[in-house]
């Protein structure tokens, strides 16, 4: 039994590990190396030690980007999960028990498809769509209506203190559908007798949601939080295509990926890599923290 087992395991692991090393570990190692150099992509890189990181500490754009990630890290998961949970509850449970299973509100099958639509579109396409939605004159979708009603147009993307929120709204709009489906799947696996028992004890919909659904869905929510947190560290496509002046106005919507891309375009490959390394550690810290903070006893059922 014992002999032949190691070759067997190695046989299975060799290919994936090689692929992982070549396509994941090696580029990371390379990025760390390049971040310590001045490199423009033609002649070989020149070693400059930590100069790029010193420059990074003094870079306003970097700190702006980090603070935007901070804001998105809190709001994007919170708002998306709240909305997705609410809708998932309505679509799966809120209709009460019928024929032995919990039902959603009337027409829930139709809504489920509609909510998923944004997920089918590529992010840049969504960003282009929202250029029209947010356009600050009468040909914008929202402002067209506002102006017809006699209000002043709102500069969604051109007011520095509003632009980031407009971008976050797009990200929420885009993500809700997916998490709705994720939570729906989670809710479907909660046994109906728990709900029945709770209902017999006189629990209303609100109690059902907070006392039954939410605790039993905790694992799924935790996963959603990590995913959305990682999405909050990205946001590149939407910011690049949608925002004024790619990260503007006045850098009020810029994100790290945008700064990396910008410096890459300026042929500052070393500095771009240094930003990438910073992003790497930020993401890693976030993932570690989240998994630690949200650790809880899993409820078996």
């Amino acid at each position: 039994m014992r002999h032949g087992r190691y070759p067997f395991i190695v046989g299975f692991l060799a290919a994936p590990i090689t692929l992982y090393v070549v396509f994941v570990i090696a580029p990371y190692a390379q990025a760390f190396y390049i971040s310590m150099t001045a490199w423009r992509g033609f002649a070989p890189p020149r070693w400059i030690g930590f100069d790029n990181f010193r420059k990074l500490i003094d870079d306003d754009a970097f700190w702006k980007a980090v603070s935007h990630h901070g804001i998105m890290l809190v709001t994007l998961p919170l708002v998306t999960i709240a909305i997705a949970l609410f809708f998932a509850f309505l679509l799966n449970v809120a209709g009460g028990a019928r024929g032995g299973t919990m039902q959603g509100v009337w027409g829930s099958k139709f809504y489920r498809v509609v909510f998923f639509f944004p997920q089918l579109l590529a992010l840049p396409i969504i960003a282009v769509l929202f250029q029209t939605v947010y356009r600050p004159n009468s040909s914008g979708l929202i402002n067209g209506v506002l102006m017809k009603l006699g209000f002043d147009p709102v500069g969604f993307l051109i007011k520095p203190n509003l632009a980031l929120w407009s971008i976050i709204a797009v990200l929420v709009w885009q993500s809700v559908g997916f998490y709705l489906v994720l939570f729906s799947a989670g809710m479907a696996s909660i046994p109906k007798d728990i709900y029945e028992a709770a209902e017999i004890d006189g629990a209303g919909r609100v109690t059902l949601f907070f006392r039954v659904t939410l605790p039993l869905l905790w694992d799924t929510i935790q996963v959603a939080w990590v995913y959305l947190g990682i999405a909050a560290f990205d946001a590149f496509a939407v910011v690049d295509v949608l925002s004024v002046d790619q990260g503007g106005p006045d850098g009020s919507t810029t994100v790290l990926a945008e700064e990396i891309y910008r410096n890459f375009k300026f042929s500052q490959l070393g500095y771009a890599s240094a930003l990438g390394v910073a992003l790497f550690f930020l993401t890693l810290t976030f993932a570690a923290l989240t998994l630690r903070v949200t650790r809880r006893e899993a409820i078996e059922y």
Binding site: V21, I25, A29, F42, A43
Partner: peptide, 21 residues
């Protein structure tokens, strides 16, 4: 550990990607 052992290979790769010549 296997990943670590293979890292020098990564060094070779990077040498290749960033070399002029």
């Amino acid at each position: 550990a296997v990943g670590l052992v293979t890292l020098p290979g990564a060094g070779l790769l990077s040498a290749c990607a960033t070399s002029g010549g």
